[in-house]
């Protein structure tokens, strides 16, 4: 038997009331997305430290298991590595020479004003988004560490994504493989532009799409795609990936191609945030159209 309580509001009334609240929220957040940000940030500031804690707990447990499993293996490996170290010391000398050569070659490749000089902040990936539909994630650095919206995020030597939301000690990053992501790119060797779009259906096969390449572009498989000068959010010259399977569209006006990203998005645990914004003053006005 159901117990009767003193305040017994009918279920339908609650349903109608909550539906109304939802509809109002949807309309409000559509129209005034900027004003709703403090609400989101407040919720993020509460939840993110918990995620951070659970995450380190999780990796702690993993490392304990790992330790037992691999102690014996490590001893053998140690012997082997000592031998290898000798070889590598010799190799290192010749590599230093190579590095000097590389530095001069980079200048030819227009990469000298690239991202190696930008100020960067390292951050750890704390959590992924809650659905299986998007590719967004949270990192453990926020406005306290000098991170702002629209900053570029890289890992290794390739573009990961862009900061879309900033809290005090966390930020959200949308990766370039996200279905909503759009980056204006450029072929490094020929300076032909293209639009690089994330796509949920193709990333499982390991690539994203490049569209609207001019038919006149003299590109070949394996060419590097970098962020373009005309991009309003991405600093130029950051490596996105390598192009393959170039196809001319039926209308004979443009070409499309596949881009294989250089970053391994399945194994992303630390990223670098470039703390320099592109045209920071112009961006202020542009955020309204975001």
């Amino acid at each position: 038997m159901k117990r009767r309580r003193r305040f017994n509001i009918p279920v339908k009334a609650i349903l109608v009331a909550c539906t109304a609240v939802c509809l109002v929220l949807i309309v409000v957040s559509f129209k005034y997305s900027d004003q709703m940000n403090p609400v989101k940030t407040a919720a993020g500031n509460v939840i993110t430290p918990m995620q951070s804690g659970i995450n380190s707990l999780g990796s702690g447990i993993y490392s304990v298991f790992d330790m037992f499993r691999s102690k014996k293996k490590l001893l053998d490996e140690n012997e082997q590595l000592k031998k290898e170290l000798e070889d590598i010391r010799e190799e290192n000398v010749s590599l230093i020479e190579d590095r000097n050569e590389l530095a001069s070659l980079r200048q030819l490749y227009k990469l000298d004003q690239g991202y190696s000089q930008y100020p960067k902040v390292a951050a750890r990936v704390v959590s992924r988004d809650d659905s299986n539909w998007y590719n967004m994630f949270t990192i453990d650095k926020g406005s306290d560490d000098g991170i702002a919206k629209n900053m570029n995020v890289i890992a290794g030597n390739g573009l990961v994504g862009v900061v879309t939301e900033v809290g005090r000690s966390y930020s959200k990053v949308r990766s370039i493989i996200d279905d909503n992501s759009y980056v204006s790119g450029m072929f490094l060797r020929t300076s032909d532009t293209c639009d690089v779009k994330g796509n949920l259906t193709t990333i499982n096969d390991g690539y994203i799409e490049a569209e609207r390449i001019s038919v006149d572009a003299e590109i070949e498989e394996g060419y590097e795609v970098v962020t373009s000068y005309v991009s309003d959010r991405y600093l130029d010259g950051i490596l996105i990936g390598y192009v393959k399977d170039i196809v001319t569209e039926p209308d004979n006006m443009t070409m499309t191609a596949k881009v294989v990203p250089v970053v391994d998005f399945n194994r992303l645990d630390t990223v670098l945030v470039i703390t320099k914004l592109k045209h920071s003053d112009e961006l202020e006005e542009m955020t309204d159209y975001d």
Binding site: L15, C18, T19, V21, C22, L23, V24, L25, I26, V28, S29, F30, M36, V39, K40, A43, G44, I47, D129, D130, S131, Y134, M136, K172
Partner: peptide
Amino acid sequence: LLSDMLFGSVIGLHALLYM
């Protein structure tokens, strides 16, 4: 609502759906 506030673009859509 929690899901909306942390990762949604439009607040209220998930709340309505889950409700």
